[in-house]
Structures are given as C-alpha cells and as structure tokens.
C-alpha cells in the first residue's frame, strides 16, 4: 500500500478544491458569516469549595450517581466497608492510587483486592475502586488521567464503580478542566458522567449496558468536620 501516494493525492485535492471555491466565497460569506465577535465565555462567579461540592453533588445525582461526603480516609473506609457488604462483593479491582491504597488498607475483610488485574480476572470482579484526578461541578463529571493512576479498566469493567475524590479536585466548568489537563496531556483521559446507559431500544433508558451500572462517589472533605 503506497501511503505517501494517497496522502499527497488527498492534499492535492484539498488545495485544488479550496482554490476552486474562492470566487464564490465572498458572496456566500455575506449571507453566512458567523458572528464570531459576539462570542464570549460567560464569566461565572468564583464558587466556594462548599458551593462547588454542592453543585457537583446535584449534577452527579441528576445523572443517577450516588454521592457521600466524608471527613477523612478512615471514614471513607467505613462507608466503603458498608457498601462492599451490601453488594456482597468478593472480588474487587483497585487502582494503584496511594489514596485508594491507604483506604483499602483500613479495610479488614476477606474480600480479594486485585491491583493491576488481567483482563480475565477483571471480568470476574464485582466492584472497582479508583480515584480521579479532577471533577467537573457543572456536569457532575469525573476526570481520569491515565498518567496519574492505573484506573482505566477498574473504573470500567466491574458492575459497580466507586470513586474516591478529594474536595480540592473539583472545578466548576468543563472549560477549566480542559485547560488543566492539557498542561501535561495524559495518553488517555476519560470523562465519566453517571453510570453506563443506553436508549437504543425504543428510546427507553436502560442502565449498565457495557460499563458499570452503578457509580458511587465518596468525597473526602477535610474541612467538613471543622465547620460542623
């Protein structure tokens, strides 16, 4: 296959056709010129951490996500313990994030925690626990950067995904997050907003088609108790 030949043919065609268009461009522009000058990104008021959290919670819940807020890692472990019991999870996929490791370290139970599971073993897991690098309040979205944590599959394959988040990771808008993640672009960045869903059959919503059917976020906010 001669790829460079195809490439130059495509580029030649692009240039030729763009040139052919020139005589018509002005007349068309008169009718259709985008009014670009009017575009401004709306300036949003700086939100306090408390408001950001509240915003995030509201939007996460609106897409069916489950939200709890805790004071510290050990409290997170308590909640996690309860959940694992409730789901009767026996095999749990975990990411390699220090935060997740620390919390899992608190758990005294006989479930199996598997880090860096092979594909086969992943498919047997009942639950996955990961962290996230950022969260977007305006959409209730988790942002996972592959360079920071090994969470691509643990957040995807098991039927339940538990994500541990810290209050300082929340930003208000998608735009802010794009700017942040671009600074050192991970090979894979995943945005997660709610549980896996489909409307492919008669536009009826069904949850958990390929990814997790449940998304649970445990947020650690160390200022919580102090304020209480």
């Amino acid at each position: 296959m001669n790829n460079s030949e195809a490439k130059s043919a495509i580029f030649a065609s692009i240039r030729q056709n763009l040139a052919a268009s020139l005589p018509f461009d002005a007349a068309h522009h008169a009718h259709h010129a985008p009014k670009d000058s009017t575009f401004t990104t709306p300036v949003l008021p700086e939100l306090s951490t408390e408001n950001l959290i509240e915003n995030f919670r509201k939007n996460l819940e609106s897409v069916g996500g489950n939200f709890s807020i805790v004071y510290d890692e050990s409290e997170a472990a308590e909640i996690l313990l309860m959940m694992i019991g409730e789901k009767k999870a026996r095999k749990i996929a975990v990411s390699d994030s220090p935060l997740v490791e620390k919390i899992v370290g608190f758990l005294k139970m006989d479930a199996e925690f598997i880090e860096n599971a092979s594909a086969d073993r992943l498919f047997e897991c009942d639950l996955g626990i990961t962290g996230a690098q950022w969260a977007i309040a305006e959409t209730g979205t988790l942002v996972l950067e592959s360079e920071s944590e090994r969470h691509r599959l643990a957040s995807l394959v098991p039927p339940v995904h538990v994500c541990i988040l810290e209050a300082g990771q929340i930003r208000q808008t998608l735009g802010e997050i794009l700017e942040l993640v671009q600074q050192s672009l991970s090979r894979t960045i995943t945005f997660i907003t709610g549980a896996s869903r489909t409307s492919d059959i008669e536009l009826t919503l069904a949850i958990g088609v390929h990814g997790p059917g449940e998304l649970i976020v445990i947020l650690i906010d160390k200022t919580e108790e102090a304020e209480n």
Binding site: P23, A27, A30, H31
Partner: peptide, 12 residues
C-alpha cells in the same frame, strides 16, 4: 434573489 447572482456584483 441575491444568491442567484453569486458572480455578479451589480445585480447582487
């Protein structure tokens, strides 16, 4: 109407 005269300034 003006779209009919893409190449004719005057009529446009």
């Amino acid at each position: 109407f003006d779209e009919l005269f893409a190449e004719d300034e005057n009529w446009r």
